[in-house]
């Protein structure tokens, strides 16, 4: 029996198929020595959607995210982000492109010697000529937006894992980028905190029109936030599914996709 499809995405309606692509991956292949992690991965992320890259452990989804944010170069393939060639961009052009999107890392990656406010101020002070008062105002507002308005002067070591991730989202949003990449936002969080983070993502997507590219394997989060997914598979060394996760859950005939969405354990 197909499980009931949960109410998805709050009161938000994702973009239609005609929305312009904001991220494009074409023929992406990644090898480490003789080990092929994935090959020929091709997809579009449409403007305004919450796009999830999912798959089991070791399938290469975090590696794919590293390619999309410019931390690694693919062995083969092309990546276009916000209309620009990410792989070909060099020097100042590359720095400008990097400033146009935000990234939240799996562990938050807040700078441990800085308070939350200083963490959020950093990109504003580094890349804008805003007066100090404006920088402070914006940084406080970003932290308030993620529910950390009363923790601005705390160090990352003084707050919980969920708060670290919220602060990391606030820092990633400091320059109001139209595109945010999140690596495993729910990993290591309790279900309530995780659900709160999902709601935050939906709110930001709905109210600010931010496009999200999220790497996760948390089924509840995927079904709650995702407009579209691509699924990578370790055995296939590539992409095995693309589409609306609720539709895939109900209709996919691909055994790995069905096993993932219906939480069927791999045969021991």
């Amino acid at each position: 029996m197909v499980p009931e499809i949960p109410p998805a995405r709050g009161d938000r309606i994702g973009p239609g198929p005609d929305a312009p692509p904001i991220v494009q991956g074409r023929g992406l292949t990644m090898r480490f020595g003789t080990n092929t992690v994935f090959r020929d991965v091709t997809f579009d992320v449409r403007q305004g959607e919450v796009f999830v890259i999912l798959g089991g452990s070791g399938c290469g989804k975090s590696t794919l995210l590293k390619l999309l944010v410019g931390l690694r170069r693919p062995t083969e393939g092309a990546i276009t982000v916000l209309g620009e060639d990410l792989i070909g961009a060099r020097g100042a052009a590359r720095r400008r492109l990097l400033q146009r999107f935000g990234v939240m890392f799996q562990l938050g990656a807040l700078f441990g010697s800085m308070t939350l406010l200083e963490n959020v101020r950093l990109p504003l002070e580094s890349f804008t000529d805003l007066p100090r008062e404006a920088v402070l105002e914006i940084a406080r507002a970003k932290l308030g937006m993620v529910g950390l308005g009363d923790a601005t002067h705390k160090l990352p070591s003084e707050i919980s894992g969920g708060m670290v991730k919220r602060a990391a989202i606030a820092r990633a949003m400091a320059l109001d980028p139209p595109l945010l990449f999140l690596d495993e936002p729910s990993a290591g969080l309790d279900p309530i905190t995780s659900a709160g983070l999902d709601q935050l993502i939906l709110t930001l997507a709905r109210d600010l029109g931010v496009t999200f590219v999220i790497v996760t394997h948390e089924l509840d989060s995927i079904l709650t936030v995702a407009d579209r997914i691509i699924m990578l598979d370790k055995a296939a060394r590539g992409m095995i599914a693309e589409g609306d996760p609720r539709v895939l859950r109900a209709t996919s005939t691909e055994p790995t996709v069905r096993a993932f969405f219906n939480r069927i354990a791999e045969a021991a």
Binding site: V69, L71, R95, L98, Q99, V103, A109, F111
Partner: peptide, 17 residues
Amino acid sequence: TMKVNEEIDALTTMGLD
């Protein structure tokens, strides 16, 4: 420690050298 905690990756993706 910053490298292990992905803080250097965060700097890079923020466009900071």
